[in-house]
Design a protein around this nucleic acid. Sequence first.
DNA 1: GTAGGTAGTGATTGGCCACTAACTTTGATC
DNA 2: GATCAAAGTTAGTGGCCAATCACTACCTAC
Lengths: 182, 182
Amino acid sequence: MRMSAEERRESVIRAAMIEFARSGYRGTSTETIARRVGVSQPYLFRLFPSKQAIFAAAAERCIEETWKVFDEASAGLTGEEARVAMSRAYAGLVEDRERLMMQMQLYVSVFAAEMAGEGDIGEAARKLWRELFERVRIRVGGDVKDATQFMAYGMLVNTLVALGYPREDRMWDGFDQHDGCE
Amino acid sequence: MRMSAEERRESVIRAAMIEFARSGYRGTSTETIARRVGVSQPYLFRLFPSKQAIFAAAAERCIEETWKVFDEASAGLTGEEARVAMSRAYAGLVEDRERLMMQMQLYVSVFAAEMAGEGDIGEAARKLWRELFERVRIRVGGDVKDATQFMAYGMLVNTLVALGYPREDRMWDGFDQHDGCE
DNA sequence: GTAGGTAGTGATTGGCCACTAACTTTGATC
DNA sequence: GATCAAAGTTAGTGGCCAATCACTACCTAC
């Protein structure tokens, strides 16, 4: 029952990822997160300075883990093999709709944050994306066009999963069967 | 100043598209929308039965307009020509980041709505998307793969614009220059 | 066994928000 | 110029929510 503050913070991040993914930043109350953690609501504010901080921690964790999946899937591979491996890994990752939604919530929050004047959040997110693109580009053989196409299909899958199409209904989902342009 | 209910509803939808795009469903108060329309907040509930209904109307309008842009751009064209025309048109449309964000908010809200038990919203959104895809497919010549690729690049552009990449920085944005697989 | 630090709670507060009800204004028609 | 419907408002309600504060329970070291 009783944990160290560090362990509790970890539980809070996990719970927050689920709840924010489900209902977004504004739609999630700290009460809900606390209930999932199994702790009183005011205690969250001992572990984090604000609700914003909890969201930021959850978003960062989400990106970290996403990159980790890409990296591990394509380790030691190049070109076409790397692309197929990453496609498969991403398709699997994203099958967990809740996890994907956290990613989507982050995209949406960038704009809201910029509107609210917190400019550096957007810059950080863009940098992460650029890095991801560069790494993918290198793994798939260096061609910008190939990498672009890979990312484009990824974003399509994001949208379809977000909208809740069951896998078998995505008849246009050529992501992991797709054999490229050439 | 004084308008017919139908005209007012129209203004409300326009205002709602802007505000929901900026702050999302939960982050937008009906008061904010009403202020933008130039009308008292309770009056919104004469024009629409609920906040949900306002959002639904805004979302539907958003997708309708997207198709309208595709339709007009590709009128009288088919196949490759149609695809290029629609690509160009979409790139222009999406340059209005605020308008794009309404689309993103819709994607994100579907999941939240389903989690909250309002199942038909998700089904409606999927139907709208499927129709859009079908219409595009026919315009580009009937091939599922071509249509898929078109939509995939569209979703990539969505993400890049949502993240706030300035146009000239999207070095991997091959959307409107892209000349297809074949 | 007690002193002190860490984990955790209950009660509360000030503010916001969707929605309702009851009322007023406006303008077209006769 | 009275009437009636449609356009629009003011005032209010009940509920939720982030954050604060003052408190209690538990553990460890001496």
